[in-house]
Design a protein around this nucleic acid. Structure first.
Lengths: 234, 234
DNA sequence: GGGTATGCGGAACAGTTATTCCACTTCTGC
DNA sequence: GCAGAAGTGGAATAACTGTTCCGCATACCC
């Protein structure tokens, strides 16, 4: 049963499409802090129309980016099964960096937990938006673990790299890719080369001083990083 | 001639000290978006008192972090003249990561341009705050260039690494160090090892696909990344 | 065509935060 | 001690943004 989108009046359906399209453009350029008034104006509708279609801003954001999050999972899955895991690994990171470099909103969405440029986080409760992000991260992480093992077996990756390390590296590269890309599109390829070269095995690799984060530790940290609203009484 | 701090009434001077101390604590824990009301409450004064001492929030932030910015420059300078440039380079990055991992406000301040988690940026005009950050970045960058050359000469660093590359790497590491540190303090040492290992020379280094950013490009991008307030009419 | 459910725009509301203002205190020099 | 300059607290203000509401318009079905 398709959602009741079918039941929408024609003009309403057209407006909905336009809103999603323009919202994507506005978020991509100005980030998720763009106001709903701006989105509405870009789409040529009133704010009321936004609220008729989407319960709140979070749901609009989710609607705009759901497909892209699914695509990220698909990419990870495909990479994990690629013929040459070493190359697939590098391409995986490059692809992610590209997405982030070209869409400020997507960057804020996925890195939001790691850099909390945002205010939403409610009372720590799981909005459907944060739930979707969690789901994406979990899925990507699973495929990534497979990819890493295969890359190590192929001798393309140092043995002491954990999936959570790659997630941190990914976040780090991506958080910079966006802004650096303003100066010169594609500049993040330098970063990636330097970092990926560092992940290849070598005889004189430095020893790792601490154990990698567990998945649990990482996801808890990402969640917690957006906790606020609590001031020591004095 | 010392600033008219000397002319402050005793209670006023004490309040000022307390404000700076508590503001540092509040910013470190909650970031620069902490409200002035929160800072005032923590210091046990009214908001009016904050405004009597500091023209606006930016100036308070500057007062809180000026010393630390100076320290960063000093560190870069000392590193650039260190006996072992390879080790000094790694320690330079580790020291920066430590600072960022332990002070959310400082992280937002310095990376603000690169991740713009903030609203200030005014009309692109140079506030004294952003001017101070620019000055710090320029100074650090100068020392960094010397350090890199020495490290390359010592065979500790691949030849194709530019100072701007290191600034990007630094920003990338630091943007993650803070949040990842919530999960496990010091976890950023893994990131640093992986990355620094990647910067060492090796026979089969991957070729760099694009030229490094110039200083000019980088600083312009950092400045521009916070430009907003402009919506395509339709 | 006409009646009605559906959809629309945007003014009004609520909550948040930087900043201002001023009646009231507190220190300081004598 | 005391006059008055210097300092203080916190209510009021202004600006911004997510969300609600409702009188009016539009598309759909007959």
């Amino acid at each position: 049963m398709p959602p009741q989108t079918t039941r929408l009046r024609r003009d309403a359906r057209e407006n909905r499409e336009r809103v999603l399209l323009e919202a994507a453009a506005v978020f991509a350029e100005h980030g998720l802090t763009a106001t709903l008034a701006d989105v509405a104006k870009a789409a040529g509708v009133g704010v009321g129309t936004l609220y008729r279609r989407f319960p709140d801003k979070d749901e609009l954001i989710l609607a705009v980016y759901q497909a892209r999050m699914d695509a990220a999972v698909t990419l990870a899955e495909r990479s994990s099964g690629a013929a040459d895991p070493g190359t697939a690994f590098r391409e995986f990171i490059e692809h992610g960096a590209h997405d982030f470099a070209t869409d400020r909103g997507f960057r804020e969405l996925v890195l939001g937990g790691l850099t909390d440029a945002l205010g939403w986080s409610r009372s720590g409760a799981a909005t459907s938006l944060s739930a979707a992000i969690d789901r994406m991260n979990t899925a990507v992480s699973g495929h990534l673990a497979v990819l890493l093992e295969r890359a190590k077996a192929a001798g393309a990756l140092r043995e002491d790299v954990a999936p959570t390390d790659v997630q941190l590296i990914n976040a780090a590269v991506q958080s910079v890719a966006g802004v650096a890309g303003l100066a010169r599109p594609g500049i993040h390829h330098r970063l990636i080369i330097m970092i990926v070269d560092g992940l290849r095995p070598r005889d004189d690799s430095s020893p790792m001083p601490v154990a990698p984060l567990t998945e649990e530790e990482l996801s808890r940290a990402v969640r917690n990083s957006a906790r606020d609203r609590d001031m020591p009484p004095h």
